[in-house]
Design a protein around this nucleic acid. Structure first.
Lengths: 160, 160
DNA sequence: TATTGTTATACTCTATAACTATA
DNA sequence: TATAGTTATAGAGTATAACAATA
């Protein structure tokens, strides 16, 4: 959480006044504090670079899930990403309007719509996923490959 | 992100319809996706249990930092927690109004106010920190002590 | 009767601009 | 002139209730 949030990060690498840093040793003993700080550090880089494609983090997640799960429904995306249905409507509508995804009648359920990438959506996803891989390497540059694998394994032990 | 967000988590351990789970294997290769999912899992438990003290996560962080850094200023809290000054004003005012913290004139800087815990604030912090320790143990129950230490070390390599 | 997708809406969180008083 | 704390305000993100169409 302490990471300067975009505002100050551009101009100043060192803090503007530095004043006096607080002792965070207690908070740093909490796993949740550390996962949150790490998430914010990565998310900041993620948002910066995905802005080039006009994609938010959720946009990227939706586009990627649809790409890897052709015919997925809104309901499935909501369950997977922890988004509530009313909040996904605008996201889907926006990706559809931009011509990145198609909404087709579901083959077996008349209530549902199956989501599919368009050719343009697939092309954008490939670029975005390449950018994501590169950005993740940068954000985790202090981790070796084995450490990165260990980190992911331990994190999944928490949420899976 | 996929974790059911409080709404469904109470009544149903298994998903309501289950429908068909999507393939998330690509997203799970991203460190950011995993840190975010783990954060959401812990945050959910954290919010549930801290509600007993009327503390949000930021309330807890502020109370804890002031407790471990008597005389800290708003500016320092903002820098440490990545909160913007206008968004901290209400939080500080609320903790003050509840009698958990005091705002005293800063000894050397007439513009600033030094923050201190009241006796009541210290008592509440001690309870809250005990609850946090217990809740963290629960949320990371699938990790051994060594794994927990490794996880924290690797996360700090990302954000420090 | 339950579920999918949707609208409307409210609440929280986060962000920017501008003011005051002190330095 | 720069900084600490503050106000007002705008924008995301997230939450609930309720509806039409379909199962």
């Amino acid at each position: 959480m302490a990471a300067p949030t975009s505002a100050s990060s551009a101009a100043s690498a060192a803090p503007p006044s530095a004043a006096q840093e607080l002792d965070t040793s207690y908070l740093e003993t909490l796993v949740g504090y550390n996962t949150r700080r790490a998430t914010l550090a990565i998310v900041e880089v993620f948002m910066d670079r995905m802005a080039a494609y006009g994609l938010s983090i959720v946009d990227f997640s939706v586009l990627s899930l649809v790409g890897h799960n052709p015919g997925a429904t809104s309901r499935q995306l909501c369950a997977t990403l922890g988004i509530l249905p009313p909040n996904l409507v605008g996201i889907i509508a926006s990706l559809d309007k931009r011509g990145l995804i198609d909404r087709r009648p579901h083959p077996t359920d008349g209530r549902a719509l199956g989501l599919h990438l368009t050719d343009g959506g697939l092309a954008l996803l490939r670029q975005a996923e390449a950018t994501a891989a590169s950005l993740e390497d940068d954000a985790t540059r202090n981790l070796g490959p084995a450490e990165r694998a260990t980190l992911i394994r331990l994190l999944q032990k928490i949420y899976r």
